[in-house]
Structure formats: C-alpha cells, structure tokens
Nucleic acid binder design. Structure first.
Lengths: 232, 232
DNA sequence: CCAATTTTATGACAAATATCATAAATTTTC
DNA sequence: GAAAATTTATGATATTTGTCATAAAATTGG
C-alpha cells in the first residue's frame, strides 16, 4: 500500500454513498485532517482474518472481496465492498478481531480513518451512528438470506442468483458484459462449489444461451430465465 | 398467546443475561410499567417473516427458533433464542420488516417491551445501546461463519458441529442427553438437508458410537471425535 | 385404549457435485 | 517472443445427497 493525500473529504463525492453523508462541514474538515489515502494493488490484502482493525476504510475506487477461510481449506467470498462503501464498519463499535479477510479484486484507492477519530463522530452525530447501525443490520439480513441460499439451493440456482446480483450491484460495461471481472475460481468461491464444477456451469449456461462468454467477459442474455432458475 | 403480569423487571434474574443488565433502577421501574407478559405454546409463532415488530421480547423461559423460508419450499433454522436473550433486537434500530419467523420450540414465557419504550432507553443509556449493537455484530459474525459452513462442509460435518453447539448452548439433562429436544425434521432444517438424509445420519453416528439414541433423546458419546468430523 | 396421524426408518434409485487426471488456452515473466 | 506458470476446459469416476416409495414405530385425540 502506498500513502497518498487524496485531498479534502468535503470535495469527495464518494462520501455521499455511505454513512459519511450525514457529516456536516466541521466534521468533514475534521475527517480530512485525520484520514490518510492509500492505493492498493489488485490481489493484495487490506486486512486478514484475526487482525484487529485500527480504523475504517472508505473506498474511493475499486472493489474488494470479503473472504472467509474454511477449516477444510476452501474459502468463501462473503460479499464485495465497492466505491462509496465503508470497509470495517464493525470495528467502530466492536474491539473484536475481524472474522474475514479483505482482498482487492481490482486496484483500489481508499482513505483510512483511524478508529478514535471516527468513533468520536459516531458518538457525537446520532445520524451517523444510526446509518452505521443500519448498515450492519442490513448486512445481517443479507447474511441470513445467504445461509438459506447456501443450504437449500443447487449450484445452478446459486449461479443464476449471483449473476443477477453482480449485474445489479456492479452493472455492465459498454459491451454489456458484467463490469466486475472475476476468475472462475472466484465465482466458485462466491457460489461455494469446486472450480471445475463452476467451469462446467459456465459452459452449461453458455450452451443454454443464458449467458455469452468472451474470455473473462460474461454477458447476461436471458435475465428473466435466470430469475426463474434462481427461484428453483 | 396469553397475557400475564410476570411482575417486576428489577426482580427478574433473566434480565442479567442480556443488554438489559445495563439498566439502572429507575430504568427498570420504567420497563416494568411498559412491558406485558405472555405465555407462548410450543409450535406457535411469535412473529412471521414480513411482520413489522412493535417491540422486543425478553425470553424468561423456553426456546424458540428463528426460521427462514426458501423460495423452493424448504426452511432453514437460522438460530435459536433462549432464556435471557432478547428477541427482535434489530427492530429497535430498524423499521424494516423482520426477515425471519420466530416459532416456539418449547413452551415459553416472554415479556414484550413496546418499541417506543425500549428505544427511549436505547437513546438515553449508551451502555445499553452498545450492548445491543454488540449483540447484532456478534450475530453477523456467526451468520458469516454459518455461510461458510453451509457452503463448504458436508452434511456429516455440519451435523457434528450442530451436536457440539447444541451441547454447548443448551447443555445436557440428568441423563446426559442434550437438553434441547428437536425432531429429526428440525435437525434437518438446522443442518440444511432432507429429513431422510438426516435420519440416516443419526443412524450412522449411532452405529459409529458417536452418539447414543433413546427415542428423541440424543447423548453425545465421543465429543473429541465429533470435533474432528466438524473440521473435515 | 384404539384409530388416526405424525414421526422415524429403510430400500432403491436418480441427481448433483466433488475429485482426479489430463490437456488446451491464456497470461505472466524474463 | 519463448518458457513458465496459471487458468480454463473436459472426461471418467466416486461420493454425497435428494427423492420417492413403503413400512414400522411413536404420538395424539377422542
């Protein structure tokens, strides 16, 4: 990670997407003074399972995955964090070690805000704290939903769900391919299956005309049909 | 559900187990005045997916399961709530509909505290709000862990994990059987498998001498071996 | 206490998925 | 730009799990 300035929070549009939108001018000036900018290369760790976070990251650009290692050596992508999101929110309210690793999926620009500083704002600004708590509640809701999906849906159905979610969350590029480029292995870790099984699913969906494959690029062709499969 | 008094919060030992332990005398008197007691019969719903909760339940006795229905008709037990726990904590900080149903697994005695009243305490007592937020964070941590378990462990391994967790969380009765009595179907919904597969797993574990079965009673015989299987 | 219902059990089979092996294609590195 | 490494692809096969059918056992309700 390389240290940078990245200038003033008050002029940073990205803050508008997170709980930071509740901060007033003086709070933003305070944040600007506390934060440090960093660039993070694709593939590198922002933090690791078991680390004690010393603050929160505000994502200016790029995407990272939150990953958890299973005792049998497999790993699971629990969710993605992208531009505008805060990474490590729970560390504001909890001193526990993080239970997930954060790994950049694309090159990233982030700002780091030390825990003490963001905690001061958390205690002082109840709109801010409400937003943070709401975010955590929402994460819990999603996580519960994901438990059910993993427990009761086939790989095929989960794949359909993930494709729709990736389109929803990250959109498509100019060629109408999913903007977020993931390897087959990453898809497998997201869906919770073996890489080979994942590759076969890609081949199946492609043969069935549900998606179009051009190398790493994935284009969704039959959204409605995918929705059906996701429900099965 | 039947309405009861259940007397004073300040004399209720159960409050010591939850975030309510942070309340002072005057807050407890306030709670006592707001709350209403209820008894809930085994099998009946406390609330249903999609409901908007009007408050929080404090569990005086008994156990309920939090269940989520999958779009393909199966259902998943996400967790249990027992004596001393607060049920519906998220409704304090969020106006969203609940995403889970709560169903009594045993006869229960609960106290219901209206949202407005508990929210007043939440805003006023920062120790209380910290405890609540910490609980929600902990739930999120467990949920993430469970996603990984569901995605990457076999039914056999998950069964071993659940047996150990049930012993840990609810303990054993005088005959050293697990205190919480669940049907095979409930075990299946907990582990995320078909009831028939679950029944077979019970037979397997019994044959292997890992557990002892006497009707609905389950005695754990080989804890260490179960720990190994849980890791596989 | 007996009939009805529910739960547990078991067999046979089908479907889904993992694993291992190998090879082609692609990307990276020097 | 060629060698090395990684990723993607595919076949063969084993394992796990689900489904359907049926029956035994246990529980419930009158």
């Amino acid at each position: 990670m390389q240290e940078l300035d990245m200038s003033k929070c008050s002029q940073c549009i990205v803050r508008k997407f997170s709980a930071l939108k509740t901060l007033d001018k003086s709070e933003l000036i305070y944040m600007s003074a506390c934060k440090t900018g960093q660039t993070i290369k694709k593939g590198s760790y922002i933090f690791n399972e078991g680390d004690h976070l010393k603050g929160v990251y505000c994502i200016k650009s790029g995407v990272c995955k939150l990953v958890k290692l299973s005792s049998n050596g497999r790993n699971q992508i629990v969710r993605f964090i992208k531009r505008g999101d805060l990474l490590g929110q729970r560390s504001i309210v909890s001193d526990d070690a993080v239970s997930l690793s954060a790994i950049a999926v694309e090159d990233m620009q982030v700002c780091f805000i030390p825990k003490a500083d963001i905690l001061a704002v958390f205690k002082q600004n109840s709109n801010f704290s409400s937003e943070i708590i709401n975010d955590i509640c929402y994460d819990l809701k999603l996580a519960n939903h994901q438990i059910v999906r993993m427990a009761h849906k086939t790989v095929r159905s989960r794949f359909a769900t993930i494709l729709l979610e990736l389109q929803e969350e990250f959109g498509v590029d100019k060629d109408k391919n999913l903007s977020l480029k993931l390897s087959r292995e990453e898809y497998a870790n997201l869906i919770g299956t073996a890489t080979e099984s994942m590759i076969r699913m890609f081949a199946n969906f492609s043969k069935e005309g549900l998606i179009e494959l051009k190398g790493k690029n994935v284009g969704i062709l039959e959204k409605e049909r995918l929705k059906q499969i996701a429900e099965e």
